[in-house]
Write a protein that binds this DNA or RNA. Sequence first.
DNA 1: GGCGTCACG
DNA 2: ACGTACGTGACGCCA
Length: 883
Amino acid sequence: MEKIILVDGNSIANRAFYALPMLSNSQGMHTNAVYGFTMMLLRIIEEEKPTHFMVAFDAGKITFRHQDFKEYKGGRMKTPPELSEQFPMMKELLQAFRIFQYELEGYEADDIIGTISRLAEEREMEVLIVTGDKDMLQLASDRTTILLTRKGITEVDRFDPAAVEEKYGLQPKQIIDLKGLMGDPSDNIPGVPGVGEKTALKLLHEYASVENVLKHADGIKGKLGENIRSHSDSAQMSKELATIFREVEVPIEGQWDRLEYGGFDARSVKEMFRKLEFKSLLEKMDLSEESRQETEQEQIAAQIVTSGGLPDFIGMLPSVEAMHIEVAGENPHASEIIGYAFLAEGKAYYMSQATMELPEAGKVREWLADETIEKRMYDMHKAAVALAWKQQALRGVVFDVMLAAYLLDPTESSLSLHGLADKFRLPPISEDERIFGKGAKFRVPKEDQLSAHLCRKAAAIRRLSGVLQQELENSGMHRLFYDLELPLSAVLAEMELTGVLVDTEDLKSYGKELEGILEGLMADIHDLAGMEFNINSPKQLGEILFDKLGLPVIKKTKTGYSTDAEVLEKLAPYHEIVDKILHYRQIAKLLSTYVEGLLKEIRPETHKVHTYFRQTVAATGRLSSQFPNLQNIPIRMEEGRKIRKVFVPSEPGWYILAADYSQIELRVLAHISQDDKLIEAFQHNKDIHTKTAMDVFGVSEDQVDANLRRQAKAVNFGIVYGISDYGLSQNLNITRKEAGRFIEQYLNVFMGVRKFMEDIVQRARRDGYVTTLLQRRRYLPEINSSNYNLRSFAERTAMNSPIQGSAADIIKLAMVQLHSRLQREKLKSRMLLQVHDELVLEVPEDELERMKKLVPEVMEGALKLDVPLKADVSYGLNWYEAK
DNA sequence: GGCGTCACG
DNA sequence: ACGTACGTGACGCCA
């Protein structure tokens, strides 16, 4: 039989809030009501196994009851903010639980539940109502049971009509008569003065209803009779107020399937638990998932290919449908290959790296390297890099599950096969962490366990290939995937493997120089402070600056005083120690991150660093760079910029050549927004910040000094980031009001930009996502949030992502095109790095002139926009000189 | 492992 | 009244 759970959301939240101690997470969000609410949900789901589920909330402060009795709920205490701030989280949690929630303006949760329960009874469903409100007992019937919370939150008393009878000696229907007589101070329902529960029950046992009590009021003696006679109206009205309205117009017919409960989305629920920091619940979920996986995990007969089995296996190669290459660890430039799995004609094969290296496996290695043989796999970029270090090529990859999943949702937190199998409801796959352990505990398991795990992955890859390919087509990202991202994977792998030569000796000697400066600064600082302390510890530094030296506190962090550069700059006039600290910080950063950090990443054999570009992490479609990060090498300050001198060409007589897009994001904005003035400015190759200054501040070109231009530049940045007056005011150190005027003025001049900003937010609200020029998507689920902060953030992201993302599209296009030009024209020049709007290459002397033309030409022609793209090129004997 | 800080576009 | 500029990765500190 169908079984529906109806939860009175407000009532349960209230109960939980007052029953549990004040929990809060590290963000300072109160979470006790959400926690109690969650415990209740989990318990109900587990114990009742409902087929349908709904949570109803009160909506609006004014209900129909107020029309008759405006003091209704008048004396009630206002909901404390610590509770009301928890409602959005509860609603988000319910979404993760995939539980239908309902609220209707002008009605309380009771009325919705009363109505749905009536309709459910008519459908012959079993109804369970969960609430902390005794009034709901009036709904108990043959089909409907009320679960009333006891003291705690997970403890409930079950009330069917018999239980109501036993407790009160009343029929469920008489509960409203009870309340009519005794009233309810918490809802400001008056009832009859002097009548409490005891008296009301006595009266009802004799007369059965309020009406009958009133009819016989003359026969009731004493003060009680007097009160009843003089408050008959009040009794009648109180009964009406307590009556749950069961005829709310809920558009439920034909929609029962929306109330169906089919289990929760484990990933989203876990995500919520993480956010709320429900650690114990998180662990509980992991445990139950593990046991589920163990029982449900697909039984795969993994055939282990040994040297004897190689001939047969080689015979199978033409029918391989999917494969997986397991690479240990995060950095493929420094990783072993753990093993290979192949899926062919429904059978799964596992091969170890040792077997792969056998002479008899030559055909398998040729197969991997054969461009014309199609392969479907997961994270081919990483595998290609790891294989290349073993002198093994990987070619012919026509589908990459990880890359596809990233495009489908670039903010997806888990692109692991475990996560994807879960998301797309395929047979479960264990998390790698469970099989291999993590960190120091990493170990390769026995071959039977390993082979089974890798073969399950191969099976998942095969299934996901089909699903994801279809999804890419449905969402219009087919071309983006096949023509851009997939070819780019191979280009990136090649760039990383080429690596960048570092002049180690130079770097070391610069390190020595910095160490000297740092020691001097440290001594000075300790002197000025009058004691030794760890300058690297923000905590200790804060104590020195604010407690010992008594400097004014400008800003606080969650954990204490803020001591960041912005604060220190404001403190500089108060004490000479501050500038020393700023300088110390700068040098310490250079030394730890850019000298010592970089030295650790240099391969001793080649003196090169091999970064790993990650293609599937940035939400906007940008690349990121790791081990080491070569996208954040200093340039703004001269002392740091010198680091760039150690990045040199890998062959004598070669040059470093760098080309960067000029104002690509604003050009993209001009194109997308079709703003006349912006387009015109770029078509005439105007200095865009000067132009902005003229228009925003209403001055002529020769009146634009460095300061005005700087302010205009900040406005342009703000526009690209999804402007807010507050953000701009912070950046420019001006008042919010002034910042607001700048923005308003900008948007009045660049009207197309204003329209774009409005439209894109609208679009995000309508579609739930925004797109780039090449149809790359970013979902913004929080765009409709009732939480101002979340919603505003989503709105700024809606404005920024298409701009930043389209710029990323363009430079990626340029990279793929440049790569094929270099190949086709048999040039020796090599791409080394991409830094978001810049490409860095190493080029031989005899190609220098050609490349100075070719690189900007390809970059400028990568995609045709309604404004020209512009790339500036420079070169030198090292990266520093290529400026 | 989270936080504060700071390097880049 | 609220409290944000957009996107990253690496380091040292500290519980």
